[in-house]
Design a protein around this nucleic acid. Structure first.
Length: 638
RNA sequence: GCCCUUGUAGCUCAGCUGGUAGAGCAAUUGAUUUGUAAUCAAUAGGUCCGCGGUUCGAGUCCGUGCGGGGGCACCA
């Protein structure tokens, strides 16, 4: 005689056990129609689940995240069903839901093609039309294993072996087709609707381990309505339009080529952007008390052996043998070089915290499959810094780093930042006592920011805990950029020390920190965030001066000269094209300000301003224009 | 690194079942001198990613290497 409590606190009493669907019907007809699954005391169950005891029940529809997830999970099943109907002999493995969709991993000798996806999609629609009932059975473990083995589903039987002994082995049937699954599922194949689409095929390792065989993964997306599906597809298209590789070409910023995969060939405009970012950060860092240094790119093998990089990261390092048979490595990190600068001369406790910044170019031999435009490269410039301090200074220094980072992100248009804090991993160096202190100090700093943060247990570096800074861009994507790591290891390994108050030598703690991480990567993120339409102050091509006709070339050249002399990035377009043509061309390459110069302007010593994405025309005296835009030619916080 | 896919003019792309390449834009030249998102015409432009093979004949088929793309693994 179950008494059921609904989310609004209302109670329903039933004389005997009752299915989820019946409960929904009792509440309202329309709810029963929309109901997908139910939650019983927080656990998801099928609508057909029989409630026997007192409990809290929530009826879930496609408006609930769990409801939508169930639609996606069902779509994954129907994908598997369709694949097995079309391609007998294909083995199924796992098919979970993911953000915005689902995937299913298959084992089959022949590859799935894009054309196959279309075929599979139609088969899936057919299965939806068949509206086959879904039901659940609980099987005996050993029977289930031998059953799946017998029908050639070896992966499934392996999965069953790994299910904890106290859990039920539930099998879901959609018509005749069945699959091992935890559930829950919708009551029939017709319920999922047809708002799905298969998006791509890809390889994926069995159990995510590169030592295992590779399966074929089919990705798909599935939604509660056609409108939601269309919106999702539109969002994908929007992201594609923002692709920094495409925009980088259109805006003439950089290119890549075969001779050096994963290394950027910066064009004039791209390099201007790069330098502007560095100039800006240099100002901010100097203000914050950093001393900028620079260390060699190529360093003897012995240093990397001492620092531990040779052993731990050797596989990712570029090395080079000189004619006299010495082995050098191109630096994959700046820290050892920086410690050597610290080691010059005696340091006193009075010198601490000692903060050194370096725009260091590092090279890392990344696996070829990892490369991705500016976002993952083999040669990049870190906005790196190392802070040598005492254990007691960790919190204050971390806090000041965090403030600097947030301040800089804000200037560049990223106000939405979350933190990820990672503490000690199993494999680590250093005394637990010191770890206790370092973790506490760092976490204190995290809390002091009052920002949203997550704790990643055991994900810290082997040499110390860390914070990572994740920023959210204009279309809601998260990017991990800055990092702050406490290092309890390297200063000792490389013999760094300072003289303390009592005259004894002590090993300092070192903080590694990067604001953007990699300037290359950050520029990629910046381009995507703004769709290439960068804020005026950071734009590498701020102004294009355009004469209305040849007669006004001289005036336009004069204007351009004055703008450049005022520190603005200006160019003049004297090509033999008409005004419309030039406006189109420079608008497409995202120049923020077009200055039109014709008779009117010459006569009044003025310019007519046309801003990117606006058809408004504003005439302004040249002097006034220069003053106005000179004032805008710096970061908001400067 | 692994799986799939892809590589033709500066760019974007066409080229059916094998018969030594084509468009638009860009470039160059000429005409036009333009007032807010593509003026007109002519010309030039290619080891069809590299290497090997099959074939009378390969951009096209096969093998292999390199690069790009989508994932997986990796990301100190």
């Amino acid at each position: 005689m179950p008494n059921i409590t609904l989310p609004d606190g209302k109670k329903l009493a039933f004389k005997e056990k009752v299915s989820g669907l019946k409960v929904a019907e009792k509440i309202s007809k329309s709810l029963a129609k929309e109901a997908l699954v139910i939650s019983v005391d927080g656990k998801l169950k099928d609508l057909s689940y029989e409630i026997e005891k007192d409990c809290e029940v929530k009826i879930l529809t496609s408006k609930d995240k769990d409801g939508l997830d169930t639609i996606r999970h069902d779509t994954a099943h129907i994908l598997a069903m369709a694949v097995q109907e079309l391609f007998p002999g294909t083995q199924v493995t796992i098919g979970p839901t993911i953000e915005n969709g689902f995937y299913y991993d298959f084992s089959r000798k022949e590859p799935f093609t894009e054309a196959d996806l279309k075929k599979i999609e139609s088969k899936m629609s057919e299965i939806v039309d068949r509206d086959e009932p879904t039901y659940r059975e609980v099987w005996d473990r050993d029977e289930a294993i031998s059953h799946f083995k017998k029908i050639g589903e070896n992966y499934k039987s392996e999965i069953i072996k790994d299910i904890p002994k106290n859990e039920e082995i539930s099998i879901y049937f959609h018509g005749k087709w069945h699959d091992l699954c935890r559930g829950p599922h919708l009551s029939s194949t017709g319920k999922i609707g047809k708002n799905f689409k298969l998006t791509k095929v890809a390889g994926a390792y069995w159990r995510g381990d590169s030592k295992n065989e590779m399966l074929q993964r089919i990705y798909g997306t599935s939604w509660a309505s056609k409108k939601d599906l269309d919106n999702y597809i539109k969002r994908l298209e929007e992201a594609e339009k923002r692709d920094h590789r495409k925009l980088g070409k259109e805006m003439d910023l950089f290119h890549f080529r075969e001779e050096s995969p994963g290394a950027v060939f910066w064009h004039q405009r791209g390099w201007t952007l790069f330098q502007k970012l560095i100039d800006y950060m240099r100002k901010k860092q100097n203000e914050a008390g950093y001393k900028e240094i620079n260390t060699p790119e190529v360093l003897d093998r012995s240093l990397w052996e001492k620092s531990g990089h040779w052993e731990k990261f050797g596989a990712h390092m570029y090395t080079s043998e000189t004619p006299d048979e010495k082995v050098f490595a191109i630096k994959p990190m700046n820290c050892p070089g920086c410690v050597q600068v610290f080691n010059q001369g005696l340091k006193s406790y009075r010198d601490l915290p000692y903060k050194m910044s370096e725009f260091g170019k590092v090279h890392r031999y990344e696996p070829s499959g990892a490369l991705h435009g500016l976002l993952r490269v083999r040669a990049f410039t870190q906005d790196d810094a190392h802070i040598f301090c005492t254990e007691d200074q960790i919190t204050d220094e971390s806090l000041s780093v965090t403030n600097l980072i947030l301040n800089i992100y804000k200037d560049l248009g990223f106000e939405n930042v979350i933190l990820k804090y990672s503490d000690r991993p199993d494999l680590r160096v250093g005394e637990d006592e010191v770890w206790d202190k370092a973790e506490k100090a760092l976490l204190e700093a995290v809390k002091a920011t009052k920002l949203e943060y997550s704790i990643n247990k055991g994900e810290g570096a082997f040499y110390g805990p860390k914070i990572e800074f994740v920023l959210r861009d204009a279309i809601g994507r998260d990017w991990q950029c800055g990092t702050l790591q406490v290092d309890l290891n390297l200063p000792g390994r490389l013999g760094a020390s300072f003289v303390d108050k009592d005259g004894s030598k002590k090993v300092p703690v070192m903080l590694h920190r990067a604001l953007f991480g990699s300037l290359e990567r950050f520029i990629g993120i910046l381009i995507e965030n703004y769709s290439g339409k960068l804020p005026f102050w950071i734009s590498p091509s701020q102004i294009m001066v355009i004469p209305v006709s040849e007669d006004f070339n001289d005036y336009s050249v004069e204007v351009n000269k004055k703008l450049i002399a005022s520190g603005l990035n200006s160019e003049v377009d004297l090509k033999n094209h008409n005004l419309n043509y030039k406006i189109r061309e420079h608008s497409l390459s995202k120049v923020p300000i077009l200055l039109i110069c014709g008779k009117k302007e010459v006569d009044s010593n003025s310019v007519t301003i046309r801003q990117l994405d606006s058809t408004k025309q504003e005439n302004m005296e040249l002097k006034k224009f220069i003053n106005h835009y000179q004032a805008l030619n710096k970061a908001p916080s400067l």
